[in-house]
């Protein structure tokens, strides 16, 4: 029986993981799990810790167990996530793992994540293509396609998964991600998915609240977006995702964003938005330099 299916042992922890309830995953009671599912559960917990930023904890936990490919993959991801800007070693480790243990799902997912993060999208996709009916892999593939701005391919991937996994959470999420790129009516559909997650107490998390807020923002419903973001801030005032989107929203509302930016710099100095803005500021200077205004006649 598929351990992730509706009756399987892993379904709840898995769903919690993908709903972004990482604390819940970490503290999930897995003692009663069958021995077969022990390892996948452990991996999920480790991944949740990684998502929470507890890199060194994870590293120490997997230390000495690199012979298990799953844990080796966890280590690679942990190493990478700890210092993504200085990560050649981790990437190489991931590549090596991918070559040797390419059939292992955990290796596929985690090494795929590392590779995609490192910009090696094609390698990541090739690795992930080996998956055998894993929605995690599908979700990752969808995201990579979206990052490549190929929403057409992403949509196809999600559609294909929909055929065999029907109403699974991950399929819904993946479709929502695509929907936010496609726009139009899809905005609303994506909104429903995030809202359903975000507003049910059992599944509420920053993750889904941000998703809801983003969907509202794209729909042009600014007050609602603001409300959702405030809810998320209440849950975690230091979430970079929340801050980044708050900056966009505040800008649209025509208000000052300096405070938010400095907060974001505090919690995640290398956030995509900040890096992007710095790059654009340079681009602005470079473009500006092409003109030489004269001030005196």
């Amino acid at each position: 029986m598929d351990p992730y299916s509706a009756e399987g042992e892993l379904v709840n922890i898995h769903n919690a993981f993908h709903a972004g309830q990482y604390d819940k995953v970490v503290s999930f009671d897995t003692s009663a799990f069958s021995s077969l599912n022990k390892l996948p559960a452990q991996i999920l917990k480790l991944r949740a810790k990684l998502a929470l930023g507890q890199f060194s904890e994870v590293l120490s936990e997997v230390k000495g167990q690199e012979s298990i490919p799953d844990l080796a993959a966890v280590k690679a991801l942990a190493q990478y996530s700890q210092e993504p800007w200085d990560s050649d070693e981790a990437v190489q480790a991931a590549q090596a793992l991918a070559q040797k243990q390419g059939d292992n799902l955990t290796v596929q997912l985690l090494c795929g994540t590392v590779l995609a993060n490192a910009g090696l999208n094609e390698e990541a996709l090739a690795l992930l293509a080996k998956h055998q009916g894993s929605l995690d892999a599908v979700a990752l593939i969808v995201q990579i396609h979206l990052q490549q701005n190929r929403s057409d391919l992403a949509a196809k991937e999600a559609q294909r998964a929909r055929k065999w996994a029907q109403d699974s959470l991950l399929v819904n999420l993946a479709e929502s991600w695509v929907g936010l790129r496609e726009g139009g009516e899809k905005y609303q559909q994506s909104f429903y998915v995030f809202e359903e997650l975000a507003q049910a107490p059992a599944t509420q998390a920053v993750h889904s609240l941000v998703g809801q807020a983003v969907a509202e923002l794209h729909l042009g419903r600014l007050p609602e977006a603001e409300a959702a973001l405030k809810q998320a801030i209440a849950l975690n005032p230091k979430s970079p995702d929340v801050l980044a989107n708050m900056i966009a929203l505040t800008t649209i509302l025509g208000q000052d964003t300096e405070e938010l930016k400095s907060k974001l710099t505090e919690v995640q100095p290398k956030h995509q938005l900040l890096a992007d803005l710095a790059a654009k500021s340079e681009a602005f200077e470079a473009a500006r330099a092409k003109y030489s205004p004269k001030f005196e006649p």
Binding site: F17, L110, V210, V214, D241, N245, A248
Partner: peptide, 8 residues
């Protein structure tokens, strides 16, 4: 906007 998707 920045939509968190897959963990990590």
């Amino acid at each position: 906007t920045f939509l968190p998707a897959n963990p990590s």
